[in-house]
């Protein structure tokens, strides 16, 4: 067998070609009785319908959560969830929080700088290559 191929799977690059919004669902939890939900209730009454209509790719659910603080929970394509407690907030503040959840990638918060060094992430391999003295076992040369 002169030439064999190595099995690979291509990697998705969101935004090159198609862009898929990473936030797939927003859950709004409110309480009818408690005062901390006052702003949230007003947001649900006045702003939510417009938000849902202008963002058709996000599934919106509203459900009561009696005797609890109001919470907005975002569910993301990567399977993670992010919840923000919006107690005592005004509708204008809640709009900002919703925007935050909508534009989030769903990834865990990470420091972009680690131990004083810049973390560079690229899916392309370095031009120079990484030299290592210990090659894979069973092969004489790593080509």
């Amino acid at each position: 067998m002169p030439l064999a191929a190595i099995r690979a799977v291509s990697k998705g690059q969101n935004g090159i070609g198609a862009f898929v919004l990473q936030c797939k669902r927003l859950d709004f939890h409110y309480c009818d009785w408690a005062g901390s939900s006052r702003g949230m209730n007003e947001y649900l009454r006045t702003h939510l319908a417009r938000f849902a209509a202008s963002n058709p790719s996000i599934e919106v659910t509203v459900s009561p959560k009696p005797r609890q603080h109001p919470v907005i929970k975002g569910v993301y394509v990567n399977g993670r969830e992010k919840a923000i407690c919006v107690r005592n907030m005004t509708p204008a503040e809640i709009i900002n929080k919703v925007q935050l959840l909508k534009t989030d990638s769903g990834e865990k918060m990470k420091k972009s700088h680690r131990a004083g060094r810049n973390m560079v992430t690229s899916i392309n391999e370095s031009v120079r290559g990484v030299w290592d003295p210990f090659h894979r076992t069973g092969e004489r040369f790593k080509i």
Binding site: L3, A5, I6, A8, S10, K11, Q13, I16, G17
Partner: peptide, 11 residues
């Protein structure tokens, strides 16, 4: 649009 470095497929 997916990323596939073709030169890594050769053996």
């Amino acid at each position: 649009s997916r990323h596939l470095p073709l030169h890594t497929l050769f053996h």
